[in-house]
């Protein structure tokens, strides 16, 4: 969104080539080749079980791919633990179930990574955390515990927690699917603001409004394969593939 002109010249920050993932005999990802440019917003769509989650979980190695290559910001994901740690602190991830740490206050949820991984001094980490809470609109909740917050507030804390590691890329796996309808907007607003600030984002979502309004590119997965991709206009109005048309006819 608004970044198209810039992104045409921007370097590719995520590159995958022929990625495959198997769970036993079941092939969850089938020859996925794609790339994402810096500052680009990519929305991933597809029916349930099509491998969307598996794919973005491979991007920060919560799942290990079985074949192909994944290169994040010039670092290849492989068994090298140093690479892994480097990637993990450059790639933030927001989960459907928030996965906040229930035994830590909101502030400590956010400062945990910076203090323990980046070895930031406590004061500095807390100042940054407060700025991030301002940014996601809930600075007054800093001392509370996750269970005391609404779902929308929890998800915004989760976003702040990821941002605290100052990632170059943010991955979202259905960030609004576990939320009550009235809370979806507050999370989407935060994500839109993030997109406008120039973050590179890969978002799995069923929010078609977000895909149309914010995405630079839409990718469509089916049965583990990347079936079709294009700008939102192309994708929603002139899809080429039959499977895409079928999917769109079911959800729109």
């Amino acid at each position: 969104m608004g970044n198209e002109a810039a992104s045409a010249a921007a370097p590719e920050i995520i590159v995958t080539e022929g990625v495959e993932k198997w769970f036993g005999d079941f092939q969850a990802l089938d020859d996925v080749t794609m790339s994402v440019k810096e500052h680009e917003i990519v929305v991933v769509l597809g029916p349930s079980g099509s491998g969307k989650s598996t794919f973005i979980r491979c991007l920060n190695r919560l799942e290990e791919h079985d074949a192909g290559r994944i290169v994040i910001d010039g670092i290849e994901l492989n068994d090298d633990v140093r690479n892994l740690n480097a990637i993990r602190s450059e790639v933030g991830m927001v989960f459907q179930q928030f996965n906040l740490f229930p035994h830590l206050s909101v502030l400590n949820n956010i400062t945990l990574g910076p203090r323990k991984v980046r070895r930031q001094p406590k004061r500095e980490a807390e100042e940054q955390a407060m700025q991030l809470l301002e940014r996601v609109g809930i600075p007054e909740q800093a001392e509370k515990f996750p269970a005391q917050l609404s779902g929308g507030q929890q998800q915004r804390v989760a976003i702040a927690r990821s941002l605290a590691m100052q990632p170059k890329i943010m991955l979202f796996d259905e960030p609004t699917s576990a939320l009550d309808p009235e809370m979806i907007k507050e999370v989407l607003d935060v994500m839109q603001e993030l997109a406008e600030s120039g973050m590179t984002m890969v978002v799995v979502t069923h929010e078609m409004g977000f895909a149309r309004g914010v995405a630079d590119r839409v990718m469509f997965f089916d049965e583990g394969a990347l079936v079709e991709q294009g700008t939102p206009n192309h994708f929603f109005d002139n899809p080429r593939e039959e499977r895409t048309k079928l999917f769109l006819s079911q959800i729109l």
Binding site: R88, G113, V117, S162
Partner: peptide, 22 residues
């Protein structure tokens, strides 16, 4: 829940720290 370990790993905590802190 497994999500706790994953969230800890996603913010860059290694195995030992995930165990100890989360």
């Amino acid at each position: 829940p497994h999500g706790q370990t994953e969230a800890a790993q996603a913010v860059g905590l290694g195995r030992t720290r995930t165990l100890q802190l989360v």
